[in-house]
Design a binder for these strands. Structure first.
Lengths: 147, 147
DNA sequence: TGAAATTAAATCGTGTGCGATATAATCTTG
DNA sequence: CAAGATTATATCGCACACGATTTAATTTCA
């Protein structure tokens, strides 16, 4: 058969697989907090920048309102964020961490370190992967019309 | 703020983002064929090995029947595969490419090369990324209980 | 042999992703 | 200033992922 079509030769599959496996690695940390992985990513942005509007949130996460709006409504129901229309420009919705949402940052502070402990040496493989991902992300973004 | 919690420092986010962007890059090739990206991955396996049972398909793709069964039913409805219970062991379902499913391989043969043309130099970054993904996948699999 | 354990798929419910479209507000321009 | 274009968010529908459970078939082993 065509070796170009072998599954294990596909970079796309390796990315897809690695992304899903890493997400599963986060599960034991996130589940007790009642968070899904995309919800955790939204909180990462908000801990950097709150309030933050939906458009900016989407730019950071490469998501649009069709994905974010329902997700944000769930975070609001959980009491982690507030959603409010901009008074000046009623099109814009501002997302702001609630007290509980801010407090959650402390609880999540240990997650990255906790995950690292699960990874055996060499850590260099992970660092290099991160750098390569930065390179290819920079190349991919314009190809799919981002930035 | 805690730099360990900055979005751009998260390897997990870079993997998640890269995986989604690469999937989008495939879209223009797959959409005319009426295929989704996960359906394409299933076909990649079947072009290597048909018939193939659901369990084996799941091991290759790291998916289970809760995801595969509905997906396979859609491929069957499209006339690309046949599904049949094993006569000896009625628990097992065998997936076999139909004539149309086999014929589709030729139409997909150009997809990997077509994608490569979109990528500017250096190709080395992509090769290295593939190798690094292999390393971390080997490390991740046992951590999440695969193999 | 036959009850318990294991296995393979299927089913169910929830939460994304995302293309397409809708809605409403703001901006642009003639 | 008003019609058309643009922008920000929401809505809708479909197809994954995946945890949990169910169903049915097979295997194990006392």
């Amino acid at each position: 058969m065509n070796p170009d079509l072998k599954l294990d030769n596909q970079l796309c599959f390796r990315l897809y697989a690695a992304s899903r496996l890493v997400t599963r690695l986060y599960q034991p940390q996130l589940e007790p907090l009642g968070l899904t992985y995309p919800q955790y990513l939204v909180l990462l942005v908000l801990w950097e920048q709150s309030p933050c509007n939906v458009k900016t949130l989407g730019e950071r996460l490469m998501l649009q309102s069709n994905t974010l709006t329902p997700l944000l409504k769930r975070l609001e129901q959980q009491g982690l964020i507030h959603r409010e229309r901009d008074a000046k420009d009623e099109r814009v919705v501002w997302i702001q961490l609630s007290e509980a949402g801010q407090a959650l940052e402390a609880q999540c502070a240990c997650i990255p370190a906790q995950l690292l402990t699960q990874l055996t040496e060499p850590k260099s493989a992970w660092l290099e992967l991160g750098q390569q991902l930065d390179k290819v992300l920079a190349q991919l973004k314009p190809l799919v019309g981002i930035q």
